[in-house]
Each structure stands twice: as structure tokens, then as C-alpha cells.
Nucleic acid binder design. Structure first.
Lengths: 196, 196
DNA sequence: AGGTTTCTCTACCATTTGGTAGAGGTTCTC
DNA sequence: GAGAACCTCTACCAAATGGTAGAGAAACCT
């Protein structure tokens, strides 16, 4: 059907389905039908459902780590760096909303993989924290718990991206537009809270 | 075993299990074993799994609505009111971490119930928004999108309460202590951002 | 050409799970 | 004490799901 190799198409389809309906609620048959192959073709490429799940999560984690890492490393100092990091976290969420929902299932489904993700994230966080604290020392930013700041920003994105009930309660429809608006507002907030 | 009626114990157990492992991954047998009765006893009290799920979610929604509603209505004006609302949202999360995780599954499992929850939440949000905007008009708070503020605070709680990977990446262990620390910091943040 | 590897398929199986049928016991009512 | 309502149980079923066995193409060596 498509030019992409089967394995690739399976991974794409699985990511979409897992993200939309949850991993448990998605059967191998669902994915296979979506790709347009037999279930056993899928089991040829991935020996078991767990293996498929891990492969999908691995890819999700890779995207996040690479994207946020590049942004944090390349952006200028000061608040611009905070801005770049926040934007980087939002980007995958906007491009593929299914993605963030999956990270949440990591712990339950593969604690080992979750550990691996944590280990890869930590240096990035450390880098960001070091810069934030440097800026605070220099008086460019108000003093605050930089580590907490990171958790704070990230969890906000996750919450809004995956919590349609809360969004609708405040009068918004879930979607990309809401995510963008939130990013703007979050940044304004951070700016106000961190202004020295 | 316990003094509580069977139906009540089933609801409690189901809430815990659903929250811990997800609804799909929790079988009726699991819950029944946890309570110490046969699966069919459970099906006597709730005609189907869906009915049990709805009952549990209904109760979760009730707790949230009642608790937040009481806090918003009773707290003094100004920033104290914001503080009361945020604390009220945190309280259920601290007391029963499983609770917030369930709200997220609402949309997928029972869109009708999700609609109902949204409808009940809206007046509360309106109330909070009206007060926030009043305070802004009077110059007690900095001007900002009050509606967004609500979504923002709530999604932060949800994100941190249900996203252990992010927490661990910033060097914390998931748990009640982290939630408390986050509440303090979130409030400090809001205070700084909203100070007129 | 002939064999080997790669890839996809049809058929089938074992287990789990939500759910049904219906029996039996307990408590409350009269 | 008789009957009814209430509550819990054992035994069983139908459907779905993850997974196995193995056959048939098709491309790729040599």
C-alpha cells in the first residue's frame, strides 16, 4: 500500500492506536487491520505484543529525548533557553498528541524501559537546571527551585494534552489550538514568575 | 470481613485497582478476590463491568466536584481564594492518588459520563473565574486569562500525580511528599505571576 | 536452475474474561 | 413457622485475544 516498509507502518499504526485507545484496549488484530496485513505478519516482525509495545515506547522516548536535548543545548541563555525547552516539550505533543499519552503507561508496562528513559532524561534536566541556576546566581532570573520548575512545566503539558475533561470544563475544546494557547500562557507565566 | 457493606467494599477496591493498573487491565476476578467474594457476587451488585466502572467514576467525579465546590465557595476573596481552590484540587490527589488517574479514562470509557462531569464542573469554574476577574478588575491581581489559569493549575496536578517518569527524571520519587512540595511551589508561582 | 532466506498468509489452539443459569442460605415480615 | 426478599455461591458458556504451526510466494545468492 504505502512505500514504507511493513515494520515501519506497523510501528506508526501501533503508536496511533495505543495513544488513542490505550495499550490494553488495542488488539494486535486492530493494528494489523489498520496496516492492512494479517495479524501473523505483525507477529513476524515483533515476537510478542510486549515486544511491539516496547519498540513503540522506545521510539517515543527517543523522539522526546532527542528533541528536548537539541533545544536545550542550542538555545541562547537566559529566559530564551527556558522558552526553547518548553517549546521543545510542546512540539511532540502538538505534532502527535498520541505520543504523550503513552509515556504515562511506561511505568506499568515496562518498568525497565521507564528506568532507561529516566536515565537518559536526567542529564538533560541537569543541563537545564544548571543553566537556570546560573541565571539565578547572576540575578537574571528570580530564585526558585529549578528542578521543580522542569517537572512543573512538563506535567502541565502532559496534563492538558491528555485530559480533555479538564479542558472542556474550562470551556475549551481539546486540540492543537488549545495546546498552542497554553504554551503561550505558560511562557508568560514563567516569565512573570522568574523575572528578577 | 470488614463492617462495611459489600457494595461499598467493591467500590473501594475497584477504585484502587482501576487507579493502580488501569481499568482495562483490571478483571472482575481481581476485584472480587481483593474484596474476598466471588466474582458473581460482584455481578449481583453491578450488572456489568461497565456499570461498575461508571459507578466508580461517578463517585470520583462527585468527590472532586463537592470538594472543589466547597473550597471555592467558602474561601475568602483575593489570592486566598485561588489558594483554596488549588489546595482543594490537590487534596483528593494526595488522599487517593488512584483517583485522578481515573478521570483521564473518562472520555474513552463513557463519553456520556464525561459530559455530565463537564456540565457539573462548569458552574464551579465559572464561579472561580468570575472571582478571579473581579480581583483583576479591582487591581488586586495581575490581568491574565482566568479560565486558562484554572486548566493550567488542574492539569499540573494531574500531570505530576500520574506521571512518575517525569518526576523521577527531575530527581524525585513519586509520592505524597512530592505532591505537597509541588503544591507549595505552584502557589508561590501563581502568587508571583498574579501579583498586581 | 536450485537452494536459502525473507516475508506474508490460512488455519488452529489455549487462556482469559465478561457474563448467564440457577441453587442454596440467611434475614426480615407477617 | 411460612413465604419473600436479599445475598452469595458453584458451574458453565461464548467471545476475544495473544500466540503457534506450518504452508506458499518471492527475491536473493551461487
Amino acid at each position: 500500500m504505502a512505500g514504507k516498509p511493513t515494520r515501519e507502518r506497523i510501528l506508526e499504526e501501533a503508536l496511533d492506536r495505543f495513544g488513542a485507545s490505550g495499550i490494553d484496549a488495542t488488539s494486535l488484530d486492530d493494528i494489523a487491520r489498520g496496516v492492512g496485513v494479517a495479524k501473523q505478519t505483525l507477529l513476524y516482525w515483533f515476537a510478542s505484543k510486549e515486544e511491539l509495545v516496547v519498540a513503540v515506547l522506545q521510539r517515543v522516548a527517543d523522539e522526546l529525548v532527542v528533541e528536548v536535548g537539541a533545544a536545550v543545548r542550542s538555545a541562547p541563555h537566559g529566559f530564551a533557553r527556558v522558552e526553547a525547552a518548553v517549546t521543545a516539550v510542546f512540539r511532540p505533543a502538538v505534532r502527535r498528541p498520541a505520543l504523550l499519552g503513552l509515556v504515562r503507561e511506561l511505568n506499568r508496562l515496562s518498568p525497565e524501559l521507564a528506568d532507561a528513559v529516566v536515565l537518559r532524561m536526567q542529564p538533560l534536566v541537569d543541563l537545564a537546571v544548571a543553566y537556570l541556576e546560573g541565571e539565578m546566581d547572576r540575578g537574571h532570573l528570580r530564585r526558585a527551585d529549578a528542578r521543580l520548575l522542569m517537572a512543573f512545566a512538563y506535567s502541565t503539558v502532559v496534563g492538558v494534552a491528555t485530559e480533555p475533561v479538564a479542558l472542556r470544563a474550562v470551556g475549551w475544546e481539546p486540540g492543537v489550538a488549545s495546546l498552542r494557547k497554553l504554551r503561550t500562557e505558560l511562557l508568560a507565566f514563567l516569565r512573570a514568575a522568574l523575572a528578577a
